[in-house]
C-alpha cells in the first residue's frame, strides 16, 4: 500500500539481446533473441546468455579476477545508465536478487571440500559470494555513497526494489535511486532451478531504472503510480493477484478501462496464464498490449521485474506489471508511461 510520486527518468539493460537500451527494445519489438547452446554439465541444452557482455573486456582486469558474473552484469548495467545521466554521488542503489551468485557459493564450497585443507580457498571470492556483492560493487565502481540495499525477492524483486526506493525518496534518505535487479546464468543456478521444478529456458541479465522524485527536474519517462503485493497464504495465487491489481487501480484512482498494457513476469506455463487471467478478470477484457520479456530473454529470475518496466516504457499510457514467485508472493505495479 504505497502511494508514490516517484518517477522513472532513465533505464539501461544487459541481456541476451545485447548491451544497452536499443538492443533490448529491438529484441522486444522483434519478439526474440538468440539463445546459446550449452555443452557443459548443465541440465538444459540452451540458455539466453548475455554473450555480448564480458566482464574483463567491459571492466578491465583490475578488481575483476575473482568477480562473480552477477556483480559484473550489475556494474555494467549501472555503467550504461550513468553514461547517459548525471547522478549525484549521494544516490542510492537498490538491487534485487534470488540468492546472489550461486556459482560463486558452489565453487567456494567445492574447493573447501575437495582440496587437501578445507581452508585452501580463494579468500577474494568470499565477498563476491555474499548476496550484497552486486549492489556494493556497483557503489564501489561508480562511487555512489547513498543507501545501498540488496533485496532477495526472487521474481518479486522488481516490485520490491521500486517500493523500497520510493520509500527512500519519500523519507529524503536519497535524492535519486538506481533501482534494478540482476541474475547470472550458471551451471549451479541451472541445477537448483531444475530441482525446484523449473523447466523454463534460463536467461541472464541486469536492468536498471533511475528513480527520482517527480520534482527532480529531469524529464520523466514514467510515473510509478503504485505497488501492491500480497502473500498467497492459502496456496491459491490467482485470487490474491487479482486483488493486488484491483487495489493498485483503486488507490491510484484509475479505471480498469484506462489500462492499455500488461507486462508479465513469466514466459509460459501456469504462472503466465495466471497473470493474464488475473489482469483480464479485473479489466474485464484482455489489455491492448501484452508484453512478455521473459519470452525474449529467457527466465532471468529476480531480474525480470525491471525488464518488465523497461518493456512497458515503450508503450505510452497506463501499464501494469505483474509478478508471481514460487514462494507464494504475488504483486502488481501500475505505471503511467509518458509519450
Amino acid at each position: 500500500m504505497t502511494r508514490m510520486t516517484a518517477v522513472i527518468t532513465a533505464w539501461s539493460a544487459i541481456s541476451a539481446c545485447g548491451v544497452g537500451r536499443a538492443p533490448f527494445a529491438g529484441g522486444m519489438q522483434r519478439g526474440w533473441a538468440s539463445s546459446s547452446v550449452l555443452d557443459g554439465p548443465e541440465p538444459g541444452t540452451r540458455a539466453f546468455l548475455a554473450s555480448a557482455f564480458d566482464i574483463e573486456h567491459a571492466l578491465g582486469r583490475k578488481g575483476t579476477g575473482s568477480m562473480d558474473r552477477a556483480s559484473g552484469l550489475a556494474i555494467g548495467a549501472v555503467g550504461e545508465l550513468l553514461a547517459e545521466v548525471d547522478v549525484d554521488t549521494g544516490a542510492g542503489i537498490v538491487l534485487g536478487t534470488t540468492s546472489g551468485s550461486a556459482q560463486t557459493q558452489f565453487d567456494f564450497t567445492r574447493d573447501s571440500l575437495t582440496r587437501r585443507r578445507p581452508y585452501f580457498v580463494n579468500p577474494a571470492s568470499m565477498p563476491f559470494a555474499l548476496m550484497n556483492s552486486a549492489a556494493s560493487q556497483c557503489a564501489i565502481w561508480h562511487r555512489l555513497t547513498g543507501p545501498n540495499t540488496s533485496i532477495a525477492g526472487g521474481r518479486m524483486s522488481g516490485l520490491s526494489v521500486l517500493r523500497y526506493a520510493s520509500r527512500l525518496l519519500t523519507t529524503g534518505r536519497a535524492g535519486a535511486v538506481v533501482c534494478g535487479a540482476v541474475e547470472e546464468y550458471s551451471t549451479a543456478r541451472a541445477w537448483l532451478e531444475r530441482h525446484r521444478g523449473g523447466r523454463r529456458v534460463l536467461g541472464e541479465g541486469a536492468a536498471m531504472l533511475l528513480v527520482e522524485p517527480a520534482d527532480a527536474g529531469r524529464r520523466p519517462l514514467a510515473e510509478v503510480l503504485g505497488i501492491e503485493t500480497r502473500i498467497a497464504v492459502a496456496g491459491e495465487v490467482a485470487g490474491p493477484l487479482a486483488e493486488c491489481v484491483r487495489r493498485v487501480l483503486e488507490r491510484a484512482g484509475v479505471g480498469p478501462g484506462d489500462v492499455g498494457a500488461h507486462a508479465l513476469s513469466a514466459a509460459e506455463g501456469e504462472f503466465a496464464v495466471t497473470e493474464s487471467a488475473a489482469v483480464e478478470a479485473v479489466l474485464g477484457r484482455p489489455p491492448a498490449t501484452v508484453l512478455s520479456p521473459a519470452e525474449v530473454i529467457g527466465d532471468v529470475g529476480a531480474a525480470i521485474g525491471p525488464f518488465q518496466v523497461a518493456a512497458l516504457l515503450e508503450a505510452p499510457g497506463l501499464g501494469l506489471a505483474t509478478a508471481l514467485d514460487e514462494d507464494g508472493t504475488v504483486g502488481c505495479g501500475l505505471f503511467r508511461v509518458l509519450s
Partner: peptide, 28 residues
Amino acid sequence: RMPASRLAVGVARELALSDVDTSTIATA
C-alpha cells in the same frame, strides 16, 4: 527452501498474514 526470500515470506505464511509487504534484505 533455499532462496533467502523464504525468511520474510515464511513469517507471513506461518501467521497467515496475506495483506503484508514482505522483504528479505540481503545486505550482509
